[in-house]
Amino acid sequence: MSRIEIQKTYKIYIGGQFPRTESGRYYPLKNKKGNVIANICLCSRKDFRNAEVAARGAQSGWGSKAAFNRAQILYRIAEMLEGRKEQFISELVLQGSTLAAAKQEVEVSIDRMVYYSGWCDKFQAIYSSVNPVASSHFNFSVPEPTGVVALIADENTSLLGLVTAIAPVIAGGNACVVLASESKPLCAVTFAEVLNSSDLPGGVVNILTGTSAELHEHFSNHMDVNAVIYYRNNKAEIKTIKENASLNVKRVFVYNKINIMSEKAESPYFIFDTQEIKTTWHPIENIGTSKAGY
C-alpha cells in the first residue's frame, strides 16, 4: 500500500513567523486539470499593516549592519536556494512551467541573489562622492536606505519576480513587504522558508499572498511606508498608487518594461532607487597660510 503524502500548508511570512492571514480568507490554487493544489492565504489590509510594523521594526537593525555582513546573508540566501532547487523546480512545474523553463527560472534567481550579494558593500562607492566645495569644509555624500519599501512583484514568475524585487531593496539596507504573484504563489511561501533559514533577521522581508486589485491601495496609502515599487501592467493600479503616494511623498517606481529573465533586470541602479543621498558638511580649520580642503 502506498504511503499517504503529507501536504504542505501554504502560509504567509511576517516578522520571521509563518502565520495564516488574519482575515481567515483563502483562494484555491488549481492546476491545469482544475484540481485544487493548495489553499492560498488571501491577505487583507490588516496583514499588510502587521507586515509593515514588522518591517519598520527590523529596518534600522538591518540597515546598520555592516555592509559586508549583509553581503554574507544575501549569499547565504543563495546557498539555501541552491539547496532547495529541486523543490522550487517541482513547484514551478506544478504551476504550469515546463521543466526547462522551471530550471532556468530557478537558476537565474539564484545567480541574481549572488549578484546582489556582491553589490551590498560596493554600490556605496559607486554612488558616493566627496564634493570639492569652495569653502573650507569637508563635504561628502553617501547613499542611505530609504526605509520601508512596499513591493508588488511580477505576476508572471513565481520565484524570479520575488528575488528581482526583494534583492536590490534589502541589499541597500531597506526592509520590505512584498506581494507575491497571485496566479503563481507557491514559490513565495517556500522562498520565505529559505529566508527563514538564512540568518536574515525576521521582519526584513515580509511576504504576503493575495490580489493586487485589493492590496495595491493599502500598499500605497500607508503613512509609514517610504517607497512603493510596482512590477505589473495595470494602468489604473499604477495611477492609484502614484496618487496615494502623494499622501506622504512616497517614492514610486514602476518597473514593468524590463524583461525579468534578462540581465537588464539586475543592476546597482535598482539598489540606488531605494536610497537617499545624505550630504554631510564639516569645517576644516585653516592653519598656516594656505587654505585647507578636499
Partner: peptide
C-alpha cells in the same frame, strides 16, 4: 535628513547635493 551640517549651518555649494 538629506543635508547634515556638523559644527556649521546653512552652507551651500554647487558641487554639494
Amino acid at each position: 535628513a538629506g543635508v547634515v551640517w556638523a559644527n556649521t549651518y546653512n552652507k551651500f555649494d554647487p558641487t554639494s547635493p
